[in-house]
Amino acid sequence: MDRTHHPGYTPATETRRLIAHGLPKVLPETLGGRHRFSPLSLYVGDRLAATAFARLDDVGLFWLDVWILSQSRGGRWTLRDGTSTAAGPADDLLAPSPAAALLNGHGRADGTVRSDINAGRWFPWPARWVAYGVVRLSAEVGAVRLEGRTIMVPEHGLQALAWAPSHKKETSVELLDQKGEPICALPLTEPGEGGTPAR
């Protein structure tokens, strides 16, 4: 998990750095040359955090990396799981998000991943699964609200999230406009799915 994809990018180090310092105010317009990777988004919840990075590998392919971390009682964040998905050019990831009309809605869940928290006994909740993933949001969405936390959405509209799915009700994230007013709720999982990919 803590592998180095190329010099300068070690997931555990970069995810902790992002949590400690927050998302940079200015992101590179594209990847290449000195900029081989870039943080995209950050979500910090109740002892769970999710980060997303755009990455250019050694053969020129672009990737979207999403990582989930848990926090110990002492406050240290530990990288627990992650996914890497092949992506288009870096401009597709770093470019400003499109309007809802072009995105066919205000947002979509591109798929979520579940992790078995019992296997490593690394999270003290009486639940079996935690889930994480990325949502793609339209230009009209200025923030999202999940489990009582409001997160400002980066200009590119990609937001990493992490949560403990409910087996009794649908897990959704609330989308807010640029003034903080509710737009709609975006389903992340169906009741009982426990974090299986959202369609």
Rank of each mutant, 00 (worst) to 15 (best):
P191G: 14
W163G: 00
I68T: 09
E170A: 15
T83D: 00
L61G: 04
L27A: 09
L61C: 08
S166R: 11
L40N: 13
G45I: 00
S138L: 07
A20K: 10
A100K: 04
L48A: 03
G45C: 03
D116M: 11
H5I: 11
D58I: 14
D58G: 09
G195Q: 10
W129A: 05
S172Q: 07
L56G: 04
G105C: 09
E190V: 06
W67C: 08
F123K: 05
L40A: 12
G82S: 11
S72M: 10
G22P: 06
L137I: 01
D177L: 03
D65G: 03
D2F: 08
W122V: 13
R16H: 14
A12V: 07
R145W: 09
G32P: 01
S84W: 09
I183S: 06
T10M: 12
D116N: 15
P11T: 09
P182I: 01
P126L: 04
R47G: 06
P11Y: 08
R17N: 12
E14S: 06
L27H: 04
D57G: 14
G8M: 11
L103M: 12
E193L: 14
T13I: 12
L48V: 08
V66P: 00
A185H: 12
T196E: 14
H35W: 07
L158I: 06
A160W: 02
R17F: 13
E193S: 15
L188K: 02
L42F: 12
N104F: 07
H6K: 14
L137M: 12
R114D: 05
A87T: 03
P98H: 06
G8I: 13
G105A: 12
G33L: 08
S70L: 04
D65N: 07
F62D: 06
P24C: 02
V134S: 01
G88H: 11
G32N: 07
W163F: 15
G107R: 00
P154S: 13
V173W: 00
P89E: 05
L103P: 00
A164D: 00
T196W: 06
D2Y: 10
T13M: 11
R55P: 05
P98K: 07
L161E: 02
T171N: 00
L56P: 02
S166W: 07
R47M: 07
S138E: 07
A50H: 05
E190W: 08
G133V: 02
A12C: 05
G133S: 05
A52I: 09
T85K: 14
R73S: 11
P11I: 06
P197L: 08
A52G: 01
D65Y: 03
W122D: 15
T196M: 08
R145F: 02
L161I: 03
K25I: 04
P11H: 14
E29D: 13
R136P: 03
W67Y: 12
L161G: 02
A86F: 11
S138T: 03
V144M: 01
K179F: 10
D2W: 13
L176I: 15
I117P: 03
V141L: 04
W67S: 10
T150L: 08
V153G: 06
